[in-house]
Design a binder for these strands. Sequence first.
DNA 1: TCGCTTGGTTATAACTTCTAACAGAAGCGC
DNA 2: GCGCTTCTGTTAGAAGTTATAACCAAGCGA
Lengths: 223, 223
Amino acid sequence: MTAVRRETPRERYRTQLRAEIKEHAWEQIATAGAPGLSLNAIAKRMGMSGPALYRYFSSRDELITELIRDAYRGLADTVRAAAAEGADLAGLGRTLRAWALADPQRYFLIYGTPIPGYHAPDDVTQTASQVMECLLDAARSLGEEAPDDAPHDAQDDDPVRAHLAEHREWAADHPADAAALHRALLFWTRLHGILSLELAGHFTGMGLDPAELYASELRALTR
Amino acid sequence: MTAVRRETPRERYRTQLRAEIKEHAWEQIATAGAPGLSLNAIAKRMGMSGPALYRYFSSRDELITELIRDAYRGLADTVRAAAAEGADLAGLGRTLRAWALADPQRYFLIYGTPIPGYHAPDDVTQTASQVMECLLDAARSLGEEAPDDAPHDAQDDDPVRAHLAEHREWAADHPADAAALHRALLFWTRLHGILSLELAGHFTGMGLDPAELYASELRALTR
DNA sequence: TCGCTTGGTTATAACTTCTAACAGAAGCGC
DNA sequence: GCGCTTCTGTTAGAAGTTATAACCAAGCGA
């Protein structure tokens, strides 16, 4: 293996301060959203003057990109952890909701309004595909358990099944059949639909409990 | 009726210029998103100096609020127009998608990442409920046509039905049963799920066609 | 024609991101 | 231990932004 070069004090300090900056950034984002994030404000709160932060992040965009990266990684980690502890697709759904509710703006950093010019770096799309892999695993094992007698939510003869069978680049070489692909995809889009509307407050004032709707969709998806 | 006071030239000019400002604002939003909207830039493009715009919009927030209002109204108008021309729930789904694809940032102005502090004024929530009313109408007439022999996508015995039957404030006094309420709600959340992911570019690179998935969900919803 | 209202202007304050130039401290090689 | 280099912080400043204040001119009504 490569020599375990001891981390120099400077490197330690550097990574520690970067982490501290990100901590403050998350606070700001949680209270004012991503566009309200100000490097100057962070610097002042940390007791140092503006431009000092540029020693640690070359630009505001780089900081935000790093936060997006962390958000993706955090999501992938929690989903993977839940799967490792034996959670099935329903469990992953509950895990996802809990993660989203814990910090809505963090969720929106991933799935919210995109900045027209911005393109996510390769590694985050890679992390995103790791999440999808967990979903595919869960969807596949669910399909095996409930053979075929239970009435599926999505029709087996739906034309989209054929489309998915021929367009499965996103599933890489995952050994899931078209039905599992379909299920994982619907899991993603349907739950995101409810979650994003709930987190954006579109259910407030309607008088219904989004948790009920979410649980209902989850039941339909794991039937 | 109240006397039809002839619009003074000044008023004409004022409303015309407000409209022109909004035109430029929409252009900016389409290319740089809502946070990239700059009053100064608009003013310069219109050949006048910055603070002049403050005669027409008291703040940047007021301009954005007005744009949100217009977006809601536009959506409500197109949905209502489609319904008036006899579109069923499936037709409304296609109309919604076309409207969203025509200007993604306009869609996100309504359904995208919320600004933590911001609260929409009453009239826009009212406009939003008008859209929901169209959906409820369509869901209800669909439920009448296909009585009960067709297998519903969502189970009739789902606990959420009971919840909806008891929490129907959002449906006001609309004469739709719990099944129709459920259907309209799923229409909203499921289609929004696909749409927002598609508009944010989360399907790019996956190799599948979101239109296929959208159509499939729409079939399931109108079955 | 007089005068008020309205629409534009410039100047300015208080922010923002970000660069440049500089000062001091920390660490490394000798 | 000494000196050099690198790194980390500083202040100054450029170019933006929103927004207010003060002022001027033109339009419109009485």
